[in-house]
Design a protein around this nucleic acid. Structure first.
Lengths: 141, 141
DNA sequence: TATTAATTTATAATTATTATAACTATGGAA
DNA sequence: TTCCATAGTTATAATAATTATAAATTAATA
C-alpha cells in the first residue's frame, strides 16, 4: 500500500484511492488486462467505480510511463505493467497474450533511417506451447 | 486488370467486380489504408458499394494471405498490401505509418520457447524523418 | 471557512466492427 | 430457356470500445 503510493508519487501521479487500487490490480493480476477486466476486479472493492475513471487512470498511467499500451488484440487496448521491456505472443487458439523474452536487436536503437525511435513493440502470433501440447494429446486420443 | 484477376484466382478468390476494384486500390494507393480510406476511393468508381463489402473482402483477403492486418493504430485496422514482410513505424507527430526495412532476426523462426510462431509484426513508434526536419526548421525560424 | 482545482462519476455521443436478412448475379441442371 | 442453388453484395440494425461533456464530489489552499 505504502509502496503503491510511492510508485505513483515517483511518477508525479496523485495517489487517489481509485488510482492506488488500479495499480494494485495491475500488480497482482496477470499482465495484459483490458479495461473491462480491470473494471470487473475494481467493482469488488469499489462498487461505485466508474469505467470512465478506469480509462482516465490508465491513460494517465500510460502518459507517465507506468504502463504500456498494447494493440496486439484488434478489439481493445491491453495494458502491460512490467518494468523490463519485452515482446508478446498472441495465441490464436486460446487468445492468451504471453510474454516473450527474446532479445531484441533494436532495443536500444534510437534512430532508424533518420526516424527517431521512441518505442518498439514486437507482436508474435501463433500457437502457444500449452495449446500445442493439448493438440498433440487430442490426436493421440 | 487481367493481372488483378490472376492474382485473385491464384489465391482462390472469385474475382468479382468489387474485389478486383478493391485489389486495384490496394495496388495503386499508398500502403496501410484503413477501411474508410478504401471505401472512399471505391465510391468514386462504384457509387453503390457497401462498406460491409469492404469489410468482407478485406477479411477474405487477409484469410487468403493477400493482405496483412496491422493493429499499429489503436483506432482501426490498417491493411498492408506488400509481398515482402517488413516492419512499421507510426509517427506520433504526423500519424503516418512508414515501412521499416530492418532485417528481423526472427523472420524465419518457427518456434520460440515451445510456442509455434506464425507471424511477426514489429511496430516502432516515434517521430519520422520528415517531421524531425520540419521541427528543426521551426527552431531555426 | 470560502474558494479553487483536481478527481470521479453519470450520461450521452462517436465510431469501428459485426450480425442479420434481403437482394442480386451467376452458373449449372432439367 | 427456365428453375434452382450458391456466392456475393447491399442495407440495416446491433454491439462494443472509447471519448466527450457536464455535474458531483473530494482535496487543497488561501
Amino acid at each position: 500500500m505504502e509502496d503503491l503510493i510511492k510508485i505513483l508519487q515517483s511518477k508525479n501521479i496523485h495517489p487517489s484511492h481509485q488510482r492506488i487500487k488500479i495499480l494494485e490490480i495491475l500488480e497482482n493480476n496477470e499482465d495484459h488486462m483490458n479495461v473491462n477486466m480491470i473494471y470487473e476486479e475494481l467493482l469488488k472493492e469499489i462498487p461505485t467505480i466508474s469505467k470512465t475513471t478506469v480509462y482516465n487512470t490508465l491513460s494517465t498511467f500510460a502518459e507517465k510511463g507506468l504502463v504500456h499500451c498494447l494493440t496486439i488484440t484488434p478489439e481493445e487496448m491491453r495494458y502491460d505493467y512490467r518494468a523490463k521491456p519485452h515482446h508478446h505472443l498472441l495465441c490464436t487458439q486460446c487468445g492468451r497474450i504471453i510474454d516473450v523474452d527474446v532479445q531484441c536487436p533494436y532495443a536500444d536503437v534510437m534512430e532508424i533511417d533518420g526516424h527517431r525511435i521512441e518505442e518498439i513493440q514486437g507482436y508474435f502470433k501463433g500457437t502457444c506451447r500449452e495449446c500445442l501440447s493439448h493438440d498433440k494429446a487430442q490426436i493421440i486420443k
